[in-house]
């Protein structure tokens, strides 16, 4: 191989530059983040589905999709029972009734993960009532 030294050096520089965001964040201590979630201010202890093994973490957006399709497309308005209390299939009235501080719950996961659900363009979040 001719010019092996130059090629290897060139590749090393290329990888180094293109991976800049990764090592920069690691160096700046932002490589990993811990999420601080506020428990529901109304003192409830259970969610609409189990939270073990990150089930709600992984599935909450699918639960919301299912609720939305049920209510808007199928025209049915069933109830979900949590700890003996019946709740509507509703984003604003149910999820946000317990998780009433959107900044300290939904957003504290979504913002670092770069997720910005468009729901709040229409659905009324607790603070902008």
């Amino acid at each position: 191989m001719y010019d092996a030294g130059k090629i290897v050096l060139g590749l090393a520089v290329f990888v180094g530059v293109s991976a800049f965001p990764i090592w920069y964040n690691i160096a700046a201590g932002k490589g990993a983040y811990a999420v601080q979630l506020e428990p529901p201010p109304n003192g409830t202890k259970q969610c609409v589905a189990e939270t073990a093994n990150g089930y709600m973490r992984a599935e909450h957006m699918h639960i919301l999709d299912e609720w939305r399709n049920m209510v808007v497309r199928d025209g049915k308005r069933p109830k979900v029972t949590v700890d003996g209390v019946h709740y509507d299939y509703s984003l604003s009235k149910t999820c946000m009734n317990c998780h009433s501080n959107k900044e300290k719950f939904c957003d504290s996961c979504h913002t670092p993960a770069g997720v910005a659900p468009a729901c709040w363009d229409c659905h009324v979040a607790p603070e902008d009532k």
């Binding site: 363009d121 229409c122 659905h123 009324v124």
Partner: peptide
């Protein structure tokens, strides 16, 4: 605002 019902968006 009636918080029970979502608004719409642009």
């Amino acid at each position: 605002m009636t918080p029970d019902f979502p608004t719409r968006m642009k």
